[in-house]
Simulated assay, not measured.
Amino acid sequence: MESPHKGKTGIRRLLIAFGYSCAGLREAFRNEDAFRQEVLLAGVLVPLAFVLERDMAARALMIGCVLLLLIVELVNSAIEATVDRISLDDHRLAKRAKDIGSAAVLLSLVNLALVWALVLLR
């Protein structure tokens, strides 16, 4: 069954979508420990990117990597919730989906560390 809001257009659709996005952020913050930890990390790193004397391109890369980590964590959390909704039984495909989502978060963390290290050490 499709959402009753699918036919909405214009500003009304944008407002409805914005509400769903805010609800998703609230749910992730409330229910996902890793997301809360990464938001805390973002709360430190984003202001730090402005304090450090770097050019705007470097600053954008540094902040972009932090935001990418949050985005990937949200997608990983959505994958995990969907898999758990389908079944809590052990299944090789469920494990594969969850492990791949976790690997995406790990690569985002490595990317963040590498970019920050390269910018700070140049």
Rank of each mutant, 00 (worst) to 15 (best):
A117K: 12
L14M: 10
K6I: 13
K98Q: 09
G24Q: 06
V72P: 04
D55G: 07
L106R: 15
I71K: 08
E27T: 11
G43A: 00
I86E: 02
L14S: 07
R59T: 03
A23F: 12
K95R: 13
N76K: 11
I100C: 04
D99F: 10
S77H: 14
A28G: 05
R26K: 11
F50R: 07
L121H: 05
L93W: 04
L114F: 08
A34M: 09
R85L: 10
A103P: 07
D99C: 13
E32P: 00
R59A: 07
D33C: 02
R59N: 05
R85Q: 01
D90K: 09
V39D: 02
L48V: 04
R96D: 15
F29P: 03
A113D: 08
R30H: 08
T9E: 08
A94V: 02
R13F: 08
F18W: 12
R54T: 10
I16H: 12
S87C: 03
Y20K: 15
R12W: 01
D90Q: 09
F50T: 01
E2I: 14
L45M: 13
Q37F: 03
I11R: 07
L14W: 05
S21M: 10
M1G: 14
D33A: 10
S87W: 00
N76A: 15
D89P: 00
L45T: 10
H5T: 13
V105T: 13
R85D: 12
F18Q: 13
V105M: 11
W116L: 11
V119C: 08
E80C: 10
F18D: 14
V46Y: 02
W116S: 14
S21V: 09
F35L: 02
R36L: 00
L52R: 11
L52I: 12
L68R: 09
A28P: 00
A58K: 11
D90F: 05
G64H: 08
A42E: 01
H91I: 03
L67W: 06
A17R: 11
C22V: 14
D89R: 11
K98M: 06
R13Y: 12
Q37W: 00
A23K: 13
V72M: 02
V105C: 13
I16Y: 11
M62K: 05
A17L: 09
D33H: 02
C65N: 12
L67D: 01
F29N: 00
R96A: 15
A78Q: 02
L114Y: 10
I71D: 07
K6D: 12
M56K: 04
G7V: 11
E27D: 14
G101E: 06
H91E: 11
R85T: 11
C22G: 07
G24W: 06
S77I: 00
R92D: 09
L69P: 05
R36A: 02
I100R: 09
I11Y: 09
V39N: 03
A81Y: 01
V105K: 10
N31C: 06
V110F: 11
A117F: 10
D33W: 01
V51K: 12
E32A: 01
M56A: 03
R13Q: 12
A81E: 04
A23E: 15
L121N: 10
